[in-house]
Design a protein around this nucleic acid. Structure first.
Lengths: 111, 111
DNA sequence: CATTAATATGCCTTGACAGGCATATGATTA
DNA sequence: TAATCATATGCCTGTCAAGGCATATTAATG
């Protein structure tokens, strides 16, 4: 399961990440929120953990999972070259860039 | 092959999209640039096309493919709730937001 | 019309992985 | 220590999709 991209291809995994986006949760909480079998949650969490999307803090018998941004950032970065397709308010400009090719260093801090 | 996320899970597909990000290309050009069998390119393009990532213009015997932004935008949108994890320069602010919840419109960029 | 170029499609095999179930591990409390 | 809660792991099975290969389709050109 190499790439970060493949990891978020799985809907349940996205759901888990979505949940954790708002705040950290224990496995049991995730299980209940998403109504998915505990064993399944644990497995997905393992994948997410090994890919660096989440990390766990041990708290008594439970493990509280939280987001780790790096892989998501990587994905965000990959999207960069495409942003001009919807960021460019001026259509003409976009068309222009299209044939002038490489000029993708669109300086201006977008985000 | 439902979701847009699953689509970009495939490395070759990302490569194709990456190529098209700079400018539109024919199947043959993609084939040569990426050194991947034509039949494979065509299949991936089909998947990308059906998922709305690309569209083709017919030009004589060749089909020139170009990016269609929508699905990529969808992915970009999905990332939104996570951006605060790396956008927040001030750690304290982030912690704060964590319990104050929604306030993610972090507009103002310095630098 | 025959040939060649450009692209698409069908079939087949193989490998990955999600889901279900049972069970193991580890920590807690009585 | 036994019983229980919380989480992880192992095995098995079905599914689905990528890659290879041959071939079909469509357009251009001689």
């Amino acid at each position: 399961m190499e790439s970060s991209f493949a990891i978020i291809g799985e809907p349940n995994r996205r759901a888990i990440l979505g949940l954790l986006a708002s705040s950290e949760r224990s496995v049991g909480e995730i299980e209940r929120c998403l109504r998915m079998p505990q064993t399944s949650v644990s497995k997905h969490l393992r994948v997410l953990r090994e890919a660096g999307f989440v990390e766990a803090r041990v708290e008594a018998q439970r493990r509280v999972y939280r987001i780790r941004p790096e892989p998501l950032r990587e994905i965000d970065a990959w999207l960069a070259p495409f942003r001009r397709f919807w960021t460019a308010r001026v259509d003409a400009l976009e068309r222009h860039l299209d044939r002038m090719s490489k000029g993708s260093k669109t300086g201006r801090g977008s985000r």
